[in-house]
Nucleic acid binder design. Structure first.
Length: 769
DNA sequence: AATTTGTGTATTTTT
DNA sequence: TACACAAATT
C-alpha cells in the first residue's frame, strides 16, 4: 500500500496554474486544459481541497462523461483524503440525472422505478411505432428517425414544439418525410406509457423538471454549493442548461475542458458552450493549463501544427519540458493486410528494443471495422491484444433477455421487456397475441401487467388465454419473491423458474454453452453486488439502476491485462500510451468521406489531434495503398491530414511497396516484392495475375458472428480431420464439410458437437496443422 | 418448426 | 463483404 501523503504534499507537486485552479475560491471558473496537462489531477485535487477546507461532500456535484472517469476520480480523491467519500455526488450526466429523476419521478408522471431504454430498446420501439403508423420503413429508416429525435431532444425541442415549428415541418416535407414529427410524438408517448426513458430523456426531462418545478430546482441549487464538470467541451445544450440552472444560485461552477478535443458534435455536443463560457459568466476566472507532461517535444510540435489549421478555437500554446524524443514515423503499406503485418512486427520490435509491455501499445483507428487486419496480424505473432468496443456484456442477447425478465417484473408497463420475454422460451404466445395485448393496454389505459392478469376481460375468450394466465402468474410469483429476497436470490429464482436457464442449458452447441456461462456470469455479478458492503440497497431494482448505464468500456478488466489496446480514437480519449499507432490514415477513412461541412472537417481534425496526443514516447502513423472495401481491392490514397504534419519531425518508416506507385496500374500489374507472399489473398492474386505458386495455403478462416451461425470465408480450406481452433470457443476436429450451393456457406460437422451441425458463417477460426 | 436460401443494406464516432 | 432478416423449402 502506498504511503499516505498529505494534501499539502500533493499541492507542492503542482505547477502554478494548476495550483491556482485548485485553490480558486468562489465564483465561476473555467480551466482550459491542453492535452496531457494534468487536467484530471487539477480537478481531483480541487475537489479534495474543497472537502479538506470543510465543504461537505454532500454539497458537491461532479459530472463526467464516462463511468470510468467518475470511478477513477473518486478513487483518487479517496486516496488523497485517506477515506471514503460516499456522500460526494460524482458520476456521469446520465447517471446523476437518472438519480434526480428517480427521486422526483412522480412530478413528471413516472414512477421512481421507470426503466431506462438503451438504444436497442429505443430503436425497437421506434420500429413498432413506424409499422403501426403504416409508414414505409425504407423511407422512415429507424436509424435516421432515431437520430433526428435524439438531436431534437438534445436541443430541448419537445415533440410539441417540433410539430408547431413550421421550419421543421417544411424541412421534413422537403426531405419527403413529412410524418417525422408525428413519429416523434408517438414515440415519446409510447415511452411514457411504458414508464420508460431513453438516454436522451434523462437529459431532457431534468430540464423539464427544473423548468416546471422551481421548488425542486431550488432544492438542488441550494444543495450543490459546488458544481464541477469534466470534458466541458462535450456538453450538449440539454446538459449545459441543466448545469447552468443548478449553478445559478451559488455560481460556483468549475468547468474543465479543451476545445481542441471536442469530438462529439455528432451526438449533440456544442463547442460553443466552452467558447462562450466567458460570455455567459462575465466574472469567470479563466485558467490555462498549457504545460504538457505526457509527450515528447516532437509529438507536441506535430500536434500543435495539426490543430493550428483549425479556425475556431481558444488561443493557447501547449508546450512541454520533456525530452525531444524520436521522430514520428510514417509507414506506407501495399495493402491493408500488409499494414496490419507491418504494425504487428513493429510492435514486436519495439517491445524488444524498449523492454516494453503489451499494455504500453495502442493501435488507434477511425472505425471499428478497421480492427480486423490488426487482430490477425497480432495473433500471428502471438501478441495478446484486446479490441475495445463492440457488444458490451450487457448488450448480449441472453443477458438482455434475463434482464428483460427483471425489468418486466419491476415495471409491468415496460413494453420492450414484455416483447422480449413473453414468448421466450416458447409459450405459444405469438406476435398477433402480443399486438392484441398491447392494444388492449393502450385502449383501456392500463398496464400490460393488468391486461395479462385478466386476459378474458380485456381480450375476450381465446384458447391462448391459458398460456397468458400462466405467464402472468409466473411474473406475479417473481414479483412476490422480489419483495422478500435480495437481488441475487431473486435473480437466481427468476433465471431458473422462467425456463431461460434450462433452455440455455439444453443448448449443447458451443455458443449455447457460452451463453449459459454468460448468464452465470451475470448471476455472479449480481452476487458481487449483493455482497458489496458499500451497497445499501440490495434489491434487484437497485442493481438494474446501476447496470442500465454501463457501456462496454466500463466492464471489469479481464484477467489478462497486459494486452495491446485496439480501439477507435473516440474511445482512446482521456487515455495515454507510450507507443501509439494511428492506422488507416487514408482519405475517405480519416478524414471520413461522410463529412461535408467545414465545421465537421474541423472536428475531424480535432480527432486527429486527440489521436496524436495520446502518445507519450513514440508515434507511428500508417496507411495502405490498397484496401479491401466491400469485398473489392481498391486503390486508396494517403490522408490529406498527412500534408498538415510538420515533416521536420518525421521519419519515413518502412515502405512496403508492391509494384508501381501509379494506383491505376498498381491494381492491374503489381510485381510482387513482398517478402511474404502468403499474406496475399486469393482475390488479390486473381485480380493481379500473381503467379499461383507465390501464394501459400491460407492459414486462417475468419468468423465474425459468434452466435447461432458460424461462417467460413474460404470453405475449401476446411477438410476432414482438420483440427480447428476457435478464438473464443475452444477447438475441435472437423468431421465433414458440406458445401452449400452458394459456396459461401457450409455445414461443418465437428467431433465435439456430435451430430449437431453448425452453419459456418465467418467466425474466427484458426486451422492448426 | 427447423433449416436453408435469398435479399437488402450499411459501411463514423457513443453516453 | 458480411450481416440481419425474410422467404422458401424440407
Amino acid at each position: 500500500m502506498e504511503e499516505h501523503l498529505s494534501l499539502a504534499n500533493y499541492l507542492s507537486s503542482l505547477n502554478e496554474p494548476q495550483r491556482q485552479a485548485v485553490l480558486h475560491q468562489q465564483g465561476p471558473l473555467m480551466i482550459i486544459a491542453g492535452a496531457g496537462s494534468g487536467k484530471t489531477r487539477a480537478l481531483t485535487y480541487r475537489i479534495a481541497y474543497l472537502i479538506q477546507q470543510g465543504v461537505d461532500p454532500f454539497n458537491i456535484l461532479a459530472l463526467t462523461f464516462t463511468n470510468k472517469a467518475a470511478r477513477e476520480m473518486r478513487q483518487r480523491i479517496e486516496q488523497i483524503l485517506g477515506g471514503s467519500v460516499q456522500r460526494l455526488w460524482m458520476g456521469t450526466f446520465h447517471s446523476i440525472f437518472a438519480r434526480i429523476l428517480r427521486t422526483e419521478a412522480s412530478l413528471l408522471g413516472y414512477t421512481s422505478e421507470f426503466t431506462i431504454y438503451d438504444t436497442e430498446d429505443s430503436k425497437s420501439l421506434l420500429k413498432s411505432v413506424i409499422h403501426e403508423m403504416e409508414l414505409d420503413d425504407r423511407i422512415y429508416k429507424v436509424n435516421t428517425v432515431f437520430a433526428r429525435i435524439s438531436a431534437a431532444k438534445n436541443r430541448l425541442i419537445s415533440w410539441q414544439s417540433y410539430l408547431s415549428n413550421p421550419s421543421f415541418l417544411k424541412e421534413d416535407e422537403e426531405s419527403a418525410k413529412p410524418k417525422l414529427g408525428e413519429i416523434y410524438k408517438n414515440y415519446v408517448q409510447r415511452c411514457f406509457k411504458a414508464n420508460a426513458m431513453d438516454f436522451d430523456d434523462l437529459l431532457f426531462n431534468v430540464n423539464v423538471l427544473f423548468r416546471d418545478h422551481p421548488e425542486v430546482l431550488k432544492k438542488y441549487q441550494t444543495r450543490f454549493e459546488h458544481l464541477l464538470i469534466d470534458e466541458f467541451q462535450d456538453t450538449n445544450l440539454a446538459q449545459y442548461l441543466a448545469t447552468r440552472s443548478l449553478a445559478a444560485l451559488h455560481q460556483n461552477i468549475c468547468v474543465v475542458g479543451d476545445d481542441a478535443q471536442s469530438i462529439y458534435a455528432f451526438r449533440g455536443a456544442d463547442i460553443r458552450n466552452i467558447l462562450n463560457f466567458a460570455k455567459d459568466y462575465p466574472q469567470a476566472t479563466v485558467i490555462r493549463l498549457e504545460q504538457n507532461y505526457r509527450s515528447t517535444k516532437r509529438i507536441v510540435a506535430v500536434a500543435n501544427k495539426v490543430i493550428a489549421h483549425n479556425k475556431y478555437q481558444l488561443p493557447k500554446t501547449v508546450w512541454t519540458a520533456n525530452e525531444e524524443g524520436e521522430p514520428i514515423e510514417i509507414i506506407r503499406a501495399a495493402t491493408d493486410i500488409d499494414e496490419g503485418r507491418l504494425i504487428a512486427s513493429s510492435i514486436f520490435e519495439l517491445k524488444m528494443r524498449y523492454q516494453a509491455h503489451n499494455r504500453d501499445f495502442a493501435v488507434l483507428y477511425r472505425t471499428h471495422a478497421q480492427s480486423r487486419v490488426f487482430e490477425e496480424a497480432l495473433r500471428r505473432l502471438n501478441i495478446n491484444y484486446r479490441v475495445y468496443g463492440g457488444l458490451s456484456f450487457y448488450q448480449r442477447k441472453e443477458i438482455k433477455d434475463l434482464i428483460a425478465y427483471f425489468r418486466f417484473t419491476i415495471n409491468q408497463q415496460d413494453e420492450e421487456a414484455f416483447r422480449r420475454i413473453v414468448n421466450l422460451p416458447r409459450r405459444g404466445i405469438g406476435e398477433s397475441t402480443v399486438q392484441k395485448i398491447l392494444l388492449a393496454a393502450a385502449e383501456n389505459n392500463v398496464s400490460i401487467g393488468e391486461v395479462i392478469a385478466q386476459p378474458e376481460y380485456f381480450l375476450g375468450k381465446s384458447r391462448i388465454n391459458a398460456a397468458i394466465t400462466d405467464f402472468a402468474e409466473m411474473i406475479k410469483d417473481f414479483a412476490k419473491v422480489m419483495q422478500q429476497k435480495n437481488a441475487y436470490e431473486t435473480a437466481l429464482y427468476i433465471a431458473k423458474n422462467s425456463g431461460l436457464l434450462r433452455e440455455l442449458y439444453e443448448d449443447k452447441t458451443i455458443e449455447g454453452r457460452v451463453r449459459y456461462e454468460n448468464v452465470h456470469e451475470l448471476l455472479n455479478a449480481i452476487k458481487e453486488f449483493v455482497d458489496d458492503s458499500q451497497q445499501e440497497d440490495k434489491s434487484l431494482a437497485a442493481f438494474l439502476h446501476q447496470v442500465a448505464l454501463l457501456t462496454s468500456t466500463d466492464e471489469n478488466d479481464k484477467e489478462n491485462t497486459d494486452v495491446v489496446s485496439l480501439m477507435t480514437i473516440h474511445q482512446a480519449k482521456g487515455l495515454e500510451f507510450n507507443f501509439v499507432y494511428i492506422v488507416g490514415m487514408e482519405e475517405g477513412i480519416f478524414p471520413s468521406s461522410m463529412i461535408s461541412t467545414q465545421a465537421e472537417m474541423e472536428e475531424e481534425r480535432r480527432l486527429f489531434y486527440v489521436a496524436i496526443t495520446r502518445a507519450a514516447k513514440r508515434l507511428t502513423i500508417s496507411y495502405a495503398l490498397q484496401r479491401y472495401r466491400y469485398g473489392e481491392l481498391e486503390p486508396s490514397e494517403p490522408s490529406s491530414f498527412l500534408e498538415e504534419i510538420d515533416y521536420r519531425h518525421v521519419r519515413m518508416g518502412r515502405v512496403n511497396q508492391v509494384g508501381f506507385i501509379d494506383k491505376q496500374r498498381l491494381v492491374q500489374h503489381p510485381t510482387v516484392e513482398s517478402d511474404s507472399p502468403k499474406l496475399l489473398s486469393k482475390d488479390f492474386a486473381e485480380k493481379t495475375n500473381v503467379p499461383k505458386n507465390l501464394i501459400s495455403p491460407p492459414t486462417s478462416v475468419y468468423i465474425h458472428k459468434p452466435s447461432a451461425h458460424f461462417v467460413a470465408s474460404d470453405l475449401s480450406k476446411l477438410k476432414e480431420g482438420m483440427r480447428v481452433e476457435h478464438l473464443r470457443f475452444g477447438f475441435g476436429t472437423v468431421v465433414s464439410v458440406d458445401l452449400k450451393s452458394s459456396e459461401r456457406r457450409a455445414v461443418i460437422h465437428f467431433d465435439q458437437v456430435g451430430e449437431k451441425t453448425l452453419l459456418l458463417n465467418f467466425a474466427k477460426l484458426m486451422i492448426i496443422e
